[in-house]
């Protein structure tokens, strides 16, 4: 369970988040909507900080290492596990077991053909898939149960984006995603939180919301 109570954050006297009260329980899938600059990314970061050990994070900037191959970038999801020597070995010379493990994850997001390429040579959508695969790899650890993503499928087309989201929901018990596509938010998530100027404007089950409700915080682009 992740909970923020009367939460403020920001720097000096400029608050990015004001008076946030949120509780997200295990098993929920939550979409966070709002205009850019509303405070979505900050909210996600604050949520992540609550329990970094149990959460796989996919930031908007993806956090990929451009010079490393897709394999290594996905493999980095495992680095928190104790085996420093193995990790260093795999950096220089990938072992069969690690390779196969990464390959199986890569198949789920459709980048199995790209594993040997450096990430810098991949397209935006492919890079997002690699970053998602890195998170999916973390799901193998029992401790990691939550996924937090900041526009994780923004560069992927609607159909594949939906498939990827379903994958995430299958692998993580809790999924929290910032998203700008209103349709998408209503279709794939149980609960939608609307943010405007750093405050929560609505927080409802998606069944109780319409596209118009979302328009209030998220203008048509």
């Amino acid at each position: 369970m992740l909970a923020l109570v009367d939460h403020f954050s920001g720097y000096q006297n400029r608050h990015v988040l004001r008076n946030i009260n949120l509780t997200i329980t295990e098993g929920e899938s939550v979409a966070v909507v709002g205009e850019s600059g509303a405070g979505k990314s900050t909210l996600l970061r604050q949520l992540y900080k609550l329990s970094p050990k149990t959460i796989a994070l996919c930031p908007q900037t993806l956090g990929l290492v451009p010079t490393l191959s897709a394999f290594h970038n996905i493999y980095m999801g495992q680095l928190h596990q104790r085996a420093p020597f193995r990790h260093l070995l795999n950096l220089c010379w990938p072992q069969t077991s690690a390779w196969n493990n990464v390959l199986s994850i890569a198949k789920h997001v459709g980048v199995q053909e790209l594993l040997r390429q450096p990430v810098s040579s991949l397209s935006g959508g492919q890079q997002q898939r690699v970053a998602l695969a890195r998170c999916l790899l973390q799901a193998q650890s029992e401790a990691v149960t939550t996924f937090i993503g900041d526009e994780p499928v923004s560069s992927v087309d609607q159909k594949h984006g939906g498939l990827l989201l379903e994958q995430l929901k299958e692998q993580f018990s809790t999924v929290i995603v910032a998203i700008h596509d209103r349709q998408f938010a209503l279709q794939h998530f149980d609960r939608v939180i609307g943010i405007q100027h750093g405050s929560v404007v609505f927080d409802e089950l998606s069944g109780n919301l319409t596209l118009q409700d979302l328009s209030a915080v998220c203008r048509e682009q």
């Binding site: 970061r45 992540y48 900080k49 970094p52 959460i55 796989a56 994070l57 930031p59 900037t61 993806l62 956090g63 290492v65 451009p66 010079t67 490393l68 290594h72 980095m76 680095l79 928190h80 420093p84 990790h87 260093l88 950096l91």
Partner: peptide, 23 residues
């Protein structure tokens, strides 16, 4: 600027820092 959940110590050096500054 690295992602929030970057590894630490030696692994940070080998996986994140060195590849990024190698050029």
């Amino acid at each position: 600027r690295l992602r929030e959940d970057h590894p630490k110590g030696l692994l940070l050096f080998c996986y994140e820092i060195m590849p990024r500054i190698s050029t």
